[in-house]
Design a protein around this nucleic acid. Structure first.
Length: 478
RNA sequence: GGCGCCAUCGUCUAUCGGUUAGGACAUCGCCCUUUCAAGGCGGAAAGACGGGUUCGAUUCCCGUUGGCGCUACCA
């Protein structure tokens, strides 16, 4: 049987390095065995999914050099590859579960469910749907439905016995059925949850190996149950460890840059980042650690993928990236990379237009624009404090902006202008007073190129990092 | 609270019962060198703890501890 793997990101934010990690491993597994690798968009969460995020994810994976055989952008024989376009399919399978008695409609309110969970926790019980709606007669269900009561569809889960999940790296994992929740399969908006959509799609798309993050281990029994109810052969499961912060907690945006875009803007080469991620999965036990995607694929071995959560060690990434920059690339290649990273003609033009009015000598250019070609900035608390804001106000403003920066739909000078006016209004300060420390945080100097344009030029990820850096400086100085 | 996963140098890891526990990053020292890097050489650095099983456990089993995940009409 042909090996078919997939990566199924949810388009709900910036493309995450964890997604790249999972994608890489799925890619290698498929390619290694001459199989196919599929990209599927899991956008069943109507409230959080955005087209912009989907585009960013596809772009990021492409940038890394990964390609897929089927996906929303290129189509394929098992499409559509966007779950929001497959509602009719899920509806059909949902009906089947319902008519065969493997699922049931649940009319319980959020409030009641909340109370139930609190009670269960207090009683040292596992959190699980208590089955109230399971006791309703067909007439009762019909009556409630006719009355327009909103409902969800839940999976019927046995009360006895154990479920054994076979994980290729962890062996059999046992769960007691009575501790497995009767998961919602279809939300009241008629869209499926991940659990239903993922099982139906993996089957229909003929996925043979499901390699996904460790956070799915505990819902694997539900998935297995669905395969059983449908009478389908389940795929082989492998759960990958979650990438960690240096303090071993799950890699998070609060503590670390987690976005692929950040590493790109920071000047890491895609092949270095990919190489680094690959080393986390299969370490090079012999020979050089610098490896192309082809080499990584050739030596890939699912049986030897590590299951201990690895710390995302930036200093090793730095070393690897350095080797690519100075050893793998020749001078011409180096120039090309540098050019496309920060010296593209349109970017240069934009920068020049901002700098031209502010110079008396061409030699003023260096110090004036250096911050646009830098990563993190070495700034002092004194410089940040040079304006009218005291420490508390500074912190408040920076924190405020940090949050706002992530919610801006478009990261442009115009949007940033509006954002700063908003912050000024909410904090009762003049934009002028407010902006001064931001010049220091973003450009490294209280006098520089226009702030909003500079921020746009730097991009969301670097801006986030510099704001965070400024906050750190204040923290350490207080 | 419940359930589950994980556990070798600071970090990523090798070891699939018998090794002086190996490599890489970082770190320290030396060399090279007009500076700084890079590079070369060398050093320091690990089996969480307690029980078993075994002639012998880092390796297999159990417990403890610790870390992590899940515990949503999010994925």
């Amino acid at each position: 049987m042909k090996v078919r793997t997939r990566v199924a990101p949810s388009p709900t934010g910036d493309p995450h390095v964890g997604t790249a990690y999972v994608a890489l491993i799925n890619y290698c597994l498929a390619r290694k065995h001459g199989g196919e690798f599929i990209l599927r968009i899991e956008d069943t969460d109507r409230a959080r999914s955005t087209p912009a995020s989907e585009i960013a994810i596809l772009d990021s994976l492409h940038w890394l050099g990964l390609s897929w055989d089927e996906g929303p952008d290129i189509g394929g024989p098992h499409g559509p590859y966007r779950q929001s376009e497959r509602s009719a399919i899920y509806q059909e399978y949902m009906q089947r579960l319902l008519s065969e008695g493997h699922a049931f409609k649940c009319f319980c309110t959020q409030e009641r469910l909340e109370e139930m969970r609190i009670a269960q926790r207090a009683a040292h019980q596992p959190s699980r749907y208590d089955g109230v709606c399971l006791t309703y007669s067909p007439e009762e269900v019909a009556r409630r439905e006719a009355a327009g009561e909103p409902y969800v569809v839940r999976l019927k889960v046995p009360n006895e016995g154990i479920c054994v999940v076979e994980d290729s790296r962890r062996g059999p994992i046992e769960f007691e059925w009575k501790a497995v929740d009767m998961q919602v399969l279809m939300k009241s908006d008629g869209l499926p949850t991940y659990h239903l959509a993922n099982v139906v799609d993996d089957h229909l798309m003929e996925i043979t190996h499901v390699v996904r993050g460790e956070e799915w281990v505990s819902s694997a029994p539900k998935h297995l149950l669905l395969y059983r109810y449908f009478g389908w052969e389940p795929p082989k499961f492998t759960h990958l460890p979650l990438l960690r912060n240096p303090d071993k907690s799950k890699l998070s945006k609060r503590k670390n840059p987690t976005g692929i875009l950040f590493y790109r803007r920071m000047g890491y080469l895609p092949e270095a980042l990919l190489n680094f991620l690959g080393l986390l999965a299969n370490s090079a036990t012999e020979g050089d650690e610098v490896m192309s995607l082809q080499e990584m694929t050739a030596r890939f071995d699912l049986e030897h993928v590590s299951v201990g959560g690895p710390v995302f060690d930036v200093s090793k990434l730095d070393w690897l990236n350095g080797r690519y920059l100075r050893e793998v690339l020749d001078l011409r290649g180096f120039m090309e990379r540098a050019g496309s990273w920060g010296f593209a003609p349109d970017r240069l033009e934009r920068i020049a237009s901002l700098a031209q009015p502010r110079v008396e000598r061409l030699s003023d250019l260096g110090p004036l624009v250096a911050f646009l070609f830098s990563g993190r900035l070495a700034i002092s608390a004194e410089a940040l404090r040079s304006g009218k804001l005291d420490d508390a106000a500074l912190r408040e403003a920076l924190t405020f902006a940090l949050r706002e920066v992530d919610t801006l739909p478009e990261f442009t000078a115009v949007a940033l202008d509006t954002m700063f006016k908003g912050i000024a209004e909410e904090t009762g300060r003049k934009v002028r007073d407010l902006a001064r420390p931001f010049y220091v945080a973003i450009t490294g100097s209280p006098t520089s190129l226009p702030l909003y344009d500079s921020m746009e030029l730097l991009g969301r990820d670097l801006v986030r990092e510099r704001l965070r850096g400024a906050l750190d400086v204040l923290e350490k100085a207080s």
